[in-house]
Structure formats: structure tokens, C-alpha cells
Amino acid sequence: MNMTTHPQSNEPAKSTATDTRRAWMAVLAKAPTDALVRAWGAMSGKPAYRHLRRPETGLVMVRGRAGGTGQRFNLGEMTVSRCAVALENGIVGHGYVAGRDHRKAELAAIFDALLQDSDRRAEVEALVTRPLSEAQAARKAERRRKAAATRVEFLTMVRDR
């Protein structure tokens, strides 16, 4: 049984920096591995890093709510891989990504660390997160347009008296 509550997550004081980081971590988590590998390959001045936590795969129990808004319940688990790295300047990056791909978790952690480094953030955003984020938004929009093409208007036929 999990009794964890997370009061920290609602603290408004540091929300801006945390929100920015959450946004890039989300983009990295949703990226295809080969896109991250390509971005890493294209990167000049690759940083040295060491593992605080080598990539590993585990499970996260996915929860839902009764009726969508009610009591929480356990729906089922998903595979998740994670990794933590430290750059030479001491900045720690975390990767938490769905699936079993260790390389992806590691690259997500490295990019998370680099994006926290104000000297490198602009470069990594331009090379990695911005193009990925745009591609993800485009895919989402396409899914939505295809769904919209199947929208129907049901008409209630009024019977003759």
C-alpha cells in the first residue's frame, strides 16, 4: 500500500523552474530513442558524466479514478526505465521514461542535466527538445484531425402521431 503524499508538488514558490523542467522531461520521455541517439551523435562538446544510478527497468503502478474523478484505484503496471547521471560540474540529471530502453533513459538523464546548465540549455533546446516537442505536437494534432473526421451528428427522428 502506498501512503505517499507529495505536498512538495503543489508548492507555488518554485513552480516556474520546476514546470519548465517537467516540460522538457516530458518531451524527452515521449521521444523515440533513435531521435535522442541522433541528437546525441550530432552534439559537439559532449559532456563527461558518471552514473549515479545505472539505467534500470522497473514498474510503475498506473492509477485511475472511479468515474474519472473519484476514488483512486490501481489499473495495472507499466514498464519504466530510469537513470541518474552527474556531470563534472555536479549537476544531476534524471531520466524516467516509459518502456525498457536503457539507452533512452540514460540519454534523457544526460539531456536533463545539460538543460539545467544555463550555459548549455539554449544549445540543447535547439538541438533536442524544441524539434522533438514540435514533432510531438504535430503528431497529436494529426490524431485529433483524423478523429474529427469521424464526428457525427445523430438526429432524433420524431415519429408521426
Binding site: 512538495q8 520546476t18 549515479l52 544510478r53 545505472r54 534500470e56 552527474a86 555536479g90 549537476i91 544531476v92 539545467q116
Partner: peptide
């Protein structure tokens, strides 16, 4: 609780399993 640097984390087992 953000771990900005490594100072706060001790190393784990050399072989976790």
C-alpha cells in the same frame, strides 16, 4: 526536493542485485 548536486547522495552497492 531537488538534488542539484551529487553531494547529497551516497553511492549505493557496487553490484545492486
Amino acid at each position: 526536493m531537488t538534488l542539484a548536486t551529487t553531494g547529497a547522495i551516497g553511492s549505493a552497492f557496487a553490484d545492486p542485485v
